[in-house]
Design a protein around this nucleic acid. Structure first.
Lengths: 141, 141
DNA sequence: CATATTAATGCAACTTAGTTGCAATAGCAA
DNA sequence: TTGCTATTGCAACTAAGTTGCATTAATATG
């Protein structure tokens, strides 16, 4: 995952402006241990006295998605979308149905075997996948 | 997957009424090759001259979900929810990013290995999972 | 068959999550 | 310091789904 300064430098080089809202939003996204919703992000900005508005938040998230700086995540048990800074490595989530916490897991490599099988047996070329596990975390069991 | 008559008998036995809307909705769900949205379901009823209303559709879907007759599916590339009759066997979806078609795949058993690993290494008890593959179907490649 | 019970329905009004047009504001290169 | 234009904020809108309440209709029972 990239550091704040790198992201800002990259954007600046691209001719985009480093506004207070943009900087703070990226900071919050980097600092958030879990994927955060647009609403959560807005609340976080307001708490930090950064003037922001939901339109700005949504527009900035679209902007950051387009630049592959953040990625959008849809958990199946939720209706809202969440966002996280793009990681170097692809990963999945463990969602606790008790306390609603989310942990990351990495377990690729094996899934690619499935993807090759799907290609072979169906002629379907897999370009991406989404996998999440729902259950109970250590504390909630 | 159960047949219409079985489902209706089950509901009737449970003290629920077999109304025109309920019968038609279950018929459409059974007949739909792919998971269908609430809106699609409503359109389908209206086309068949079955008087129905979106409130009824949503309430009936909730009812059928509670009874484990249908299951709700959230595709990551869509904002609407879709519904399908619960299958005997758990399966996943191949979503074509070209033509938006959806195919089913079964590839469990192996995923359970992951789930055991997650339990062992993290203490997280997996109760359910969701997996979908995005890519290009044979025709769209 | 008649009819009472209450499950199911329809309407309208509401909520939540996100989007859009447009005028105002503010980064930043010069 | 200033001009260009990227970014912002507001208010109004859309899409998807939900809720309260009065009405209708499926069905068990006499």
């Amino acid at each position: 995952m990239k550091a704040l300064a790198d992201i800002l430098a990259e954007l600046s080089k691209g001719g985009f402006r480093i506004t207070r809202a943009r900087r703070s939003m990226i900071e919050v996204l980097i600092g958030s241990r879990l994927p955060i919703s647009a609403e959560g992000l807005l609340a976080s900005l307001i708490k930090q006295k950064v003037p922001a508005n939901k339109t700005t938040v949504y527009r900035e998230l679209t902007f950051l998605k387009e630049r592959r700086i953040v990625q959008e995540i849809q958990f199946l048990h939720e209706r809202v979308k969440r966002y996280e800074v793009v990681f170097g490595s692809h990963h999945h989530h463990l969602i606790c149905m008790g306390c609603k916490s989310v942990e990351d897991v990495e377990l690729d490599g094996e899934l690619e075997k499935y993807e090759r099988d799907i290609m072979k047996s169906r002629g379907f070329k897999v370009l991406n996948h989404a996998l999440e596990f729902m259950g109970l975390c250590e504390a909630c069991r």
